[in-house]
Design a protein around this nucleic acid. Structure first.
Lengths: 151, 151
DNA sequence: CCCCAAATAAGATAGAATCCTATTTACGAA
DNA sequence: TTCGTAAATAGGATTCTATCTTATTTGGGG
């Protein structure tokens, strides 16, 4: 909640415009959900957003938060942090490696890269604390999905 | 399930040894859970592992899968793919950026980096399909948690 | 071979995310 | 401005993932 007001206002203005362009109705609830998200730098979950928005719209339901965030994500107006968080996924490969995540079928493939092996922790990251590991996440469409195969 | 047999065997041998060292009992169920994970390159979820292990141990319960994977993750013998998958988290920052994730409190901070801006999609990633975006995930302990503050 | 803490099975439970349906609302068109 | 309609919402029901509870079983040291 410590974002510069101008940043938030800019995001809100862009959001209004994008909604009009994409024929998404500018409902009171939708605006407030986006405002709550755009005002935060904490990558909030639905419950946090609900708590904030409820101050302005006491009767808003969690389902409305979910529905709008999902819709906005589909339209590229917000994003979901991290990989598919629908369920836990595990990995027996404990060595350093990177991930290719298919945005269609959700498959995750490991890869290693000589070029990336020697990258140091960025100074911008060290500013937040003590980094201990680092990996790249490449999103895209896997070969199988490109060919139209079902997952 | 297309991993070289030698890779799987090596992982199983290392696993046995690690369990003995760490005084973790080598139960039938634990071995089969790890074998299923070590034989896969799909970053499987609990249901997939359960399906596989059930062929050998028909009465095994999902809880045993969860319990063992959690235990093994705590001992660094397996890892959880992606960020905390306990709930969905959203982001209004649609520009390219990277993440610093605190492994203690789970807070996610955005950052951008001049050095990383010009990195191309690694060839090893392009081998899997068509990449469309890329971001770095730095894990570590944030300043607040280092100072012992509660999340 | 015995013992007991650790591990398991199976059902109960908690909680996140989605679904269902009656009601309300945004907004284009008259 | 008013009207009509498809879209959106509220609230409860439902589904599904993950964890907890408890009685029973078991690995492995002594």
């Amino acid at each position: 909640m410590t974002l510069p007001r101008e940043t938030v206002e800019a995001r809100l203005a862009a959001f209004r415009e994008a909604c009009v362009q994409k024929r998404l109705r500018l409902t009171h609830q939708r605006m407030e959900v986006f405002r709550a998200l755009a005002s935060s730098e904490e990558h909030p979950d639905v419950e946090s957003i609900h708590r904030v928005v409820r101050k302005r719209i006491p009767t808003i339901s969690p389902d409305t938060i979910y529905r709008n965030l999902k819709l906005l994500a589909e339209h590229g107006l917000v994003s979901v942090a991290g990989m598919s968080a629908d369920r836990l996924r595990f990995d027996a490969n404990m060595g350093p490696h990177h991930h290719f995540v298919c945005v269609k079928c959700g498959r995750i493939r490991d890869f290693t890269s000589r070029e990336l092996e020697h990258i140091a922790f960025p100074a911008e990251a060290r500013a937040f604390g003590a980094p201990c590991s680092m990996h790249l996440e490449v999103k895209g469409v896997c070969s199988a999905c490109q060919k139209g195969r079902k997952p």
